[in-house]
Every structure is written in structure tokens, then in C-alpha cells.
């Protein structure tokens, strides 16, 4: 396969929560090294879209392809796929009974069966990179939200993923901690990590995204480069959304 082939491809994806049609015929492709920021009002399906990519949410119809292969339904193949796609959650979800270092090492050691000593070095340098190395022996509850989220990013990176999914990574943070997490994400974006980021941080969308995707009511309404999208949104829905968040 060639490197020009998109890494993530969604085609005609539909998803229902009971009678609620949360993803309506959504198609999206993400190239290798591309940073796609998904924005939109609450309940527009953007989190569901993000979670569908590693099948934390199964879809009802349509296809999702990752790295040229359709998403496996379950079992070993699905676990294997998930190990190649990092995920960062709104509520951090660090393993509460494990230390920071154990959180980062767990995946490579238990899932990949790598040697603990080698993983330890890699984990420490990742913690160094996100600025938490000095807290390696602490437990998640002893860290601030911003620190926990940076650990969560290190945990995802420890698996050496082909892509990272961010599901509102800064929405649960105190305002003064948003910056430290966005800084890490921005540097990842610069280094060419493929990222799908669901966020309300318009600043991040402006300066770090290659493409902004606007969703509303389960539909992918509009997508464009950030300057173009923020300067002249084409759809009424996007203009309305932007006017509400950018006037303050």
C-alpha cells in the first residue's frame, strides 16, 4: 500500500442510540500525518464519531477502514487495531490503582508483551516529554487534571500508535490547565502524528489543524482548512455556531 492512501476512512456511517440517529451517513477520510479537528454543538455526534473509529461505539451501518483494513468486529483483531490507535478521553481515565509509570507501561508490557526494562525507559522519556517524569511514582488522584491528561497522552504514545484520537481532551480541565495539554497536542501535531481531535478549543483548531470538520445534528455539515472555515463558513449552521462562540 502507498503512503498516500488515507489512514482512516469512514464511509456512509450510521449510528443510532435507540430512536436517536446520532451519526447520519457520515463519510470522512483522514490522511497520514493529518490533524483533523472536529467541532460542533453538543450532541452533534462528534464524540460518537471519534469513539467509533476504534469501535468503542459499534456502528449500525457503513464502513470504517483503518490503515487499509476494515475495522474488525471483535476479539483479538479488534484489540490489535485498538493497540494501534491511541485514545485520549475527556475524563483522563488513568488506571486509578496504578502509578503514573505503571499506567504508561501497562499497554506495551501486557498487550504487546514487551520487556518491562525497555518499556520503562521509553515510558520515562515519554513522561519527561510531557513534563511529568518527577511524578512517575505517584497515583493519578495525586495529580492535577492537566497533569493527568498529559499522562494519558503519554500512555497512548507508549503504544507507538499510528493515530491518536482525542475526545474533548480539555473539556474537564480547569481553564489554567488547558494550555499545558494543548501545548503537548500541538507539538505532536507538528511532528506529524495523525490526529482526530474533538474539541471546543477554537484556538487549537486555528493553529494546529490541517482541516476543520463541522458537525451538527449527526451530520458532517462542512469541512475546510481552518483559515477558510473560520473566515468564511459556507453553511448557515456553521455561521450560526461560530457567531455564538466567537462573539465573546
Amino acid at each position: 500500500m502507498t503512503t498516500s492512501e488515507p489512514l482512516i476512512v469512514l464511509e456512509g456511517v450510521n449510528k443510532y442510540f435507540g430512536p436517536l440517529h446520532v451519526l447520519q451517513d457520515v463519510s470522512l477520510s483522514v490522511d497520514r500525518g493529518e490533524v483533523v479537528v472536529v467541532i460542533g454543538p453538543s450532541g452533534s455526534g462528534k464524540s460518537t464519531l471519534c469513539r467509533a473509529i476504534n469501535r468503542l461505539e459499534p456502528i449500525n451501518s457503513g464502513t470504517i477502514t483503518f490503515d487499509g483494513r476494515p475495522l474488525p468486529a471483535e476479539g483479538k483483531a479488534l484489540a490489535q487495531l485498538r493497540s494501534e490507535v491511541g485514545m485520549v478521553f475527556q475524563s483522563f481515565n488513568l488506571f486509578a490503582h496504578k502509578t503514573i509509570l505503571q499506567n504508561v507501561m501497562l499497554g506495551p508490557v501486557k498487550v504487546r508483551g514487551e520487556k518491562a526494562a525497555a518499556v520503562r525507559d521509553r515510558a520515562m522519556s515519554l513522561l519527561e516529554r510531557v513534563g511529568i517524569a518527577s511524578q512517575a511514582e505517584k497515583y493519578p488522584a495525586q495529580l492535577s487534571g492537566g497533569q493527568q491528561q498529559r499522562v494519558a497522552i503519554a500512555r497512548a504514545l507508549a503504544m507507538q500508535p499510528k493515530a491518536l484520537l482525542f475526545d474533548e481532551p480539555t473539556s474537564a480541565l480547569d481553564p489554567e490547565m488547558v494550555g499545558e495539554v494543548l501545548d503537548v497536542m500541538t507539538s505532536l501535531a507538528r511532528e506529524g502524528m495523525t490526529m482526530v481531535v474533538v474539541t471546543h478549543e477554537m484556538g487549537f483548531a486555528r493553529h494546529a489543524a490541517n482541516r476543520v470538520v463541522f458537525m451538527a445534528d449527526g451530520q458532517l455539515v462542512e469541512q475546510a482548512e481552518p483559515e477558510e472555515f473560520f473566515a468564511s463558513p459556507k453553511s448557515e449552521r456553521a455561521r450560526d455556531f461560530l457567531s455564538k462562540i466567537l462573539t465573546h
Partner: peptide, 10 residues
């Protein structure tokens, strides 16, 4: 979320 995070790392 604990189980989701575990599944998400494979």
C-alpha cells in the same frame, strides 16, 4: 472509563 481506557490500549 477505566474499562474503556483498557480496551482502547488493546
Amino acid at each position: 472509563g477505566q474499562a474503556e481506557a483498557a480496551r482502547a490500549i488493546g
